Computed example of a mutant assay.
Amino acid sequence: MTTSPKTTRTLDVRPGMGEMVKPVELIEFRGAARLTLHDRRLYNILLHHAFGPDLATENRRFEIALSDLKDGHDSNDRLIQSIEALMRTVVTIRRGNGRTERVQLLGWNDISDPDRTRGTLRYSMPPELAVLLRDSTVFAKLEIEVMRNFTSKYALALYEAVSRRVRLRHMMTELLDLSDFRELLGVEGGKLEGYGNLNKFAISPALVEVNALAEFSVSVHPQKTGKRITGVLLGWAMKDEGGRRAAWAELQRPRVGRRARITGTVEPWTPE
């Protein structure tokens, strides 16, 4: 008798050194367009810190040092603004069985000693989200250093979306409706209307950063219905060894001047 292979639960996967595992339910959803790059980075830190079987335990509380949540000279006020933005965000998740669920991204939390560098944040995931993640079996492995270097929330969103697709053996492209692609990038409704603006201010900057820093390359080609652009063809491929080495080398260079370097407008920087 032939037995089907056991499906691996997302929360049982062990991330490698320098990477985090993120359930697909928290990568592709509707409702998070108003989140900033800082908000998204913070959520990834909280998720990575809590990741594991306990993440699916209802009312489980986690604790993390405030110093681990700040980027450079971030203030506590900015941190609190992002926490509250995550608490206000209700996302819509479409399940494979046809169901649609709406949940908050972040639940109860408490900051102790907010005026001290040794303060901590205690937090929980909403119980409904914990239940949803309990059955998750699709995920992406994300390089933490790559995500830390993005300067655009669109680049981070594109990187996460392609990271969960790039290891699929039977796919190298996917046709997406334009409205779905806008949601995937996290473009707010009413902003960047028209494909020209969307491409100039969201798609092109995201492609520049992802293609320079990730271990894979990404392409986006507009698709027309008649004279109107109604979708995009998203393509991806793993880089060869030389491409991966170039991406790693760029991550070691200063962020200052990066855009000029990766767009080819100056000579590449080399360490002394």
Results as ranks from 00 to 15, higher is better:
residue 124 S to M: 11
residue 106 L to W: 02
residue 84 E to A: 01
residue 141 K to Y: 08
residue 103 V to T: 06
residue 116 R to V: 08
residue 91 V to S: 00
residue 172 M to K: 09
residue 165 R to A: 06
residue 99 R to S: 08
residue 154 Y to M: 13
residue 90 V to I: 06
residue 188 E to V: 02
residue 174 E to L: 10
residue 190 G to Q: 12
residue 91 V to G: 02
residue 89 T to S: 14
residue 157 A to C: 14
residue 85 A to W: 08
residue 114 P to L: 00
residue 123 Y to M: 09
residue 134 R to W: 11
residue 174 E to C: 13
residue 190 G to W: 14
residue 82 S to Q: 11
residue 177 D to S: 05
residue 167 R to M: 10
residue 182 R to K: 11
residue 144 I to V: 15
residue 151 T to Q: 09
residue 89 T to W: 13
residue 171 M to D: 08
residue 154 Y to V: 04
residue 124 S to N: 12
residue 125 M to Q: 10
residue 182 R to Q: 04
residue 125 M to N: 08
residue 126 P to W: 05
residue 189 G to T: 07
residue 129 L to D: 00
residue 168 L to K: 05
residue 171 M to T: 04
residue 95 R to E: 14
residue 170 H to I: 14
residue 145 E to Y: 03
residue 84 E to S: 00
residue 156 L to S: 01
residue 116 R to I: 09
residue 130 A to C: 14
residue 128 E to P: 10
residue 89 T to K: 12
residue 115 D to F: 14
residue 116 R to Q: 14
residue 153 K to P: 04
residue 123 Y to R: 09
residue 126 P to T: 02
residue 100 T to W: 10
residue 143 E to K: 02
residue 91 V to M: 01
residue 183 E to P: 05
residue 126 P to Q: 04
residue 163 S to F: 07
residue 185 L to P: 11
residue 83 I to E: 02
residue 140 A to H: 00
residue 153 K to W: 03
residue 120 T to V: 12
residue 167 R to F: 10
residue 159 Y to D: 06
residue 149 N to H: 15
residue 159 Y to E: 07
residue 179 S to I: 10
residue 173 T to F: 15
residue 75 S to V: 01
residue 76 N to R: 15
residue 156 L to Y: 00
residue 88 R to V: 10
residue 174 E to D: 15
residue 84 E to T: 00
residue 105 L to H: 00
residue 153 K to A: 00
residue 117 T to P: 07
residue 135 D to T: 07
residue 129 L to E: 03
residue 80 I to K: 04
residue 118 R to K: 04
residue 91 V to N: 01
residue 130 A to F: 03
residue 145 E to K: 03
residue 90 V to Q: 04
residue 172 M to T: 12
residue 112 S to M: 11
residue 82 S to L: 14
residue 93 I to C: 07
residue 86 L to T: 00
residue 127 P to D: 12
residue 183 E to V: 09
residue 101 E to P: 07
residue 164 R to H: 07
residue 125 M to P: 10
residue 122 R to Q: 12
residue 96 G to R: 15
residue 128 E to W: 11
residue 162 V to D: 08
residue 149 N to T: 14
